[in-house]
Simulated scan of single mutants.
Amino acid sequence: MKNNEQIWQSGMAKNITFIVTKDCQLACKYCYLVGKNSKERMSWEVAKTAIDYILSHEDDMKEESVVWDFIGGEPFLEIDLIDKICDYLKTEMFRRNHHWFNSYRFSFSTNGINYGTEKVQRFIEKNRDHLSIGITIDGTKRKHDLNRIWKTKDMEHGIMPKAEEEKGSYDDVVRNIPLWLKQFPKASTKVTISSNDIPYIKESVLHLYSLGIHEVNINCVFEDVWKEGDDKLFEYQLTSLADIIIDKEYYKDYACSFFNENMGKPLDCELQNGNWCGAGKMLAIDAQGNFYPCTRFAQYSLRNKKAWIIGNIHNGIDKNKLRPFLTLDRCTQSTQECIDCEVAEGCAWCQGENYDAAETPTIFQRATAICKMHKARVRANNYYWNKLYHKLEKEGGKE
């Protein structure tokens, strides 16, 4: 296992995503996928043709390793198709003596509901050494059930249930966490923060630690959902969390991505001018066989813009449509205020949200709705590291 990890992580991996379904059992309130439905499911013919195209264009994808990513909706709704795809990939990479053979990962982000089913478990057992699976659990039952609710039939027609009729999914997910951690002890979870669940951040991170999850990755949604005063509440939650993590020494065994030592400093555009994400270097395929520079450019991810298609499985990738993504960097899409910002380091953006929120159909206009939340995070992050260093210095040692 260790050797395998060293092999596949030895260089930057190509990320290739199969959008196997746009269906999901849940209707999470903060979900960026606005076009989920139960009809658009990838066929085996589309998947096979996509694989054949990708593997036959080895010279265009020279990355040392590859991550074969499966998303939905909920990817494990299509476990039969995924199993067939992965078997074919392994066979073809071997048959072609492809440089990705034995240097690959199958990656999943799942809501966890189907994790314990026989078919999913059989797939995991077959591919254990090449798997990365993250289960999304938002924290305490109160926080999780606030947003991650079961879909109803009425929702398919745009009718939202009343608050008292909503059914949260926490109990259906948490029952699978022990099995998941037994199989992937170092697995991390992803927590999403939106305006209405800010008050539950501290208790939720601590709850996830108590479940045995040692690495908690958290991010604020990039969409413009933030209300007046959210940044102050956010900072308070994070500084309160910092106090507990440090006072009870959770930092020795647990991690939370909100606290990062390399964050909140100015950036030099000449030296630190990379793009935040890999849009354009990644590749996504949908049920129709269309290629996208990232899943966030598929139509079901966009509220205001048309899908940005860069080719298809029959005609291949149109490099002219991909060209703008290859010129992206921080300075070409940021305002002068962002470029000169004193706490620019660690301020994230989503290329798809940039495109969707822009005044024109461009990827060169950075969306800044997250600005005040980033600044609040920086203040809390500084508090965390100052307190931790002071504690370690007082104890006369370093961790």
Rank of each mutant, 00 (worst) to 15 (best):
L388D: 11
N315Y: 03
G316E: 05
N320S: 15
L328K: 14
D329S: 12
D318H: 10
N320A: 12
R366E: 01
L388N: 10
I317C: 02
E337I: 04
K372G: 02
E342K: 14
W308A: 09
G316C: 05
K305N: 08
A348V: 04
H374N: 12
E393L: 12
N354F: 02
E393R: 13
A307C: 09
A348C: 15
A344I: 02
W308P: 00
L392T: 11
K387N: 09
I309T: 14
K321G: 00
L328R: 13
E359P: 00
E353K: 06
K375Y: 07
K305Q: 15
E393T: 08
T335N: 07
A348E: 07
K387R: 13
I310R: 10
E393Y: 11
K305L: 04
Q333I: 11
F364G: 03
N320Q: 14
L392Y: 08
A348S: 09
T362N: 08
T332P: 02
I310G: 02
V378H: 09
E345I: 03
C350H: 10
N381C: 08
K321C: 05
I339V: 14
G346Q: 02
N320T: 15
F364E: 09
N312S: 01
W349I: 03
K305Y: 04
R379L: 04
E345D: 10
L328S: 08
C331G: 09
K319A: 00
N315T: 09
R366G: 02
G397K: 13
Q365A: 13
I309P: 07
I317V: 11
K306W: 01
P361F: 10
L388F: 05
K375E: 12
R377P: 04
R366S: 00
Y355K: 07
N312W: 04
D318N: 15
A369Q: 03
Q333T: 03
L326F: 11
K375V: 09
I313Y: 02
A357S: 14
G346N: 04
Q351T: 15
C341V: 06
L326C: 09
L326Q: 14
Y389S: 12
I339T: 02
K321T: 01
N315P: 01
L322E: 03
